[in-house]
Amino acid sequence: MALNISISAEPVARLFGLTITNSLLTGWIVTAILAVSVYLFSKQIKTKGAPSRLQSAIEFIIETLYGVVESIAGSVKAKRFFPMVGTLFIFILFSNWSGLIPGLAAIGLREELQGVSVLIPFWRAPTADINTTLALGLITMIMVQVYGYQYLGFKYFKKFFDFSNPINFFVGILELVSDFSKIISFTFRLFGNIIAGEILLLVMGLIVPILGPTPFIALEIFVGFIQALVFMMLASVFINMATLGHGDEHHE
């Protein structure tokens, strides 16, 4: 049985010498849909009187998310981190779920690949591509450094480069390595979960084509949500740890 599984995203078009892969295309579509719906929604926000049902629903979701970040970072810091980590959550959530829409993966072009005719779909979840998750991990860890610098100033970088004694110097090297390993951890956790889900759905569809994948789609909706939540929580934990000075850590 021929199962066409590709770990990397397939190129579908070229634009001014830039290769456009199907996950990049889907990422743009997801971003566009989110941006347009946010724009349309922001025009009908009411600050006076009873809010509409849509506004109540969205406020409930945002307040729940804010509560999660607040429980990690505290109310003062959560106000500053939330726009960033909340956006990460929403983008990752809809990226994960975009790969689960049935039927869209069947639309594509047939191409000869190593003598075999395979279907190159136009649609692929953005987070099922390691480049997207690496970008998200890099953005998060760079923002961790930025927030750390904002809160502690140059004292923040003393965590990495401390020449006061040999032990502190070595601990600084460990901190540096641990920050790079966090990027790798973010990247592979999200990518591995989503690609594993896609492969699971493909294999289940091959074994039991009718109604077989349905419970697994439900499972993948749950996994997509949990992974987005985990990404947001880890990002806020790392940001919160970076903003705590060396001295404050013991008081908590």
């Binding site: 770990i7 592979f188 956790r189 979960n193 929580m233 880890l234």
Partner: peptide
């Protein structure tokens, strides 16, 4: 919330093995 964080760290190890297997 701590439970989910702990799950995430433990699960990452399995995901590494999975990614290696997939590759």
């Amino acid at each position: 919330s701590n439970l989910i964080l702990g799950f995430a760290f433990a699960e990452a190890i399995a995901i590494y093995a999975l990614v290696v297997a997939l590759i």
